[in-house]
């Protein structure tokens, strides 16, 4: 029997979907069912479709996406924990014609990097801040995050988050939306095809606004963490819809005047 090749199976005329040219072939370090991989793919598609590879500088965080530079084929800087917006500020100011984005998790953006987040948004730096909120510290093994829901269990809130002791979860998108420096603040998801399409539209708007120098664009992606939440991928998505989305409602929080 003749060897069956890739092209024998996937006929170009039948191809409905493929990974972005800007996604590398490196094996993702994310757990099965995690939203990071989908968020990466959507971002890579937008960078490719908007022809941004040659002028993009991405800033990666400390957290699960610390190795993001292995997966998307653009220039990257790896920041210290929480400091990505400070790096992005300098990059954009020194090279205003580049497309600059940060990609950060909830511990990075809303705990240790709160000052950088607030002040970068307050200065209205012309960058995109992409915020993946899964309500937990994934990489270090499931500790309580600033966005962990009330009563939610984690390895450092094993009896559930007691808001009288540990404070309430921070709605970072709502906070930065109050600052005059932000021009576009929206909350999206990647757990459904519809959610992915909406995120893609939001990312394209952010590209447009950055080109128009309108201020900081802040896109929160409410996502899941099957490993940290100790659930299967399917369970985690269901739990996210039932618990995360009511607390972090999806949709635009702030849109620029047209």
């Amino acid at each position: 029997m003749a060897e069956i090749t890739f092209n024998d199976i996937i006929k170009p005329e039948n191809l409905a979907y493929k990974k972005s040219r800007l996604m590398t072939d490196n094996i993702l370090s994310y757990c099965p069912g995690c939203g990071h991989g989908t968020a990466h793919q959507v971002l890579a598609e937008v960078l490719e479709e908007e022809n941004l590879q040659e002028r993009t500088i991405g800033i990666t965080p400390v957290g699960c996406s610390v190795l993001m530079y292995n997966y998307i084929d653009v220039d990257f800087q790896e920041a210290a924990h929480g400091r990505a917006p400070a790096l992005a500020t300098a990059v954009k100011r020194l090279m205003p014609d580049k497309f600059v984005f940060t990609y950060q998790g909830d511990g990075d953006l809303a705990a240790i990097g709160t000052a950088e987040t607030i002040h970068t948004c307050n200065r209205g730096e012309n960058i995109l801040m992409l915020f993946i909120n899964n309500g937990i510290y994934g990489m270090t093994g499931g500790q309580m995050a600033p966005t962990t829901l009330p009563g939610m269990k984690s390895s450092t809130s094993p009896y559930g988050r007691d808001v009288s002791m540990m404070g309430s979860p921070i709605k970072m998108a709502d906070i930065v939306a109050m600052l005059p420096g932000t021009c576009y603040v929206t909350r999206q998801s990647v757990n459904t095809a519809g959610g992915v399409r909406k995120l893609k539209r939001a990312l394209k708007k952010a590209v447009q606004y950055q080109n128009e120098k309108r201020g900081t664009c802040f896109i929160e992606v409410v996502s899941n963490c099957p490993s940290g939440w100790k659930m299967t991928p399917v369970e985690s998505n269901k739990w996210m819809e039932e618990h995360m989305f009511p607390f972090y409602p999806l949709g635009d929080i702030k849109v620029p005047a047209e």
Partner: peptide, 26 residues
Amino acid sequence: MVVLQAESEVAAINMVYGGASCGKKV
């Protein structure tokens, strides 16, 4: 030349990190 007052020394040195990563004299 860009001159910026940062929100903290921590932010300032990380701005330097970002600028230096672009090969700029910062």
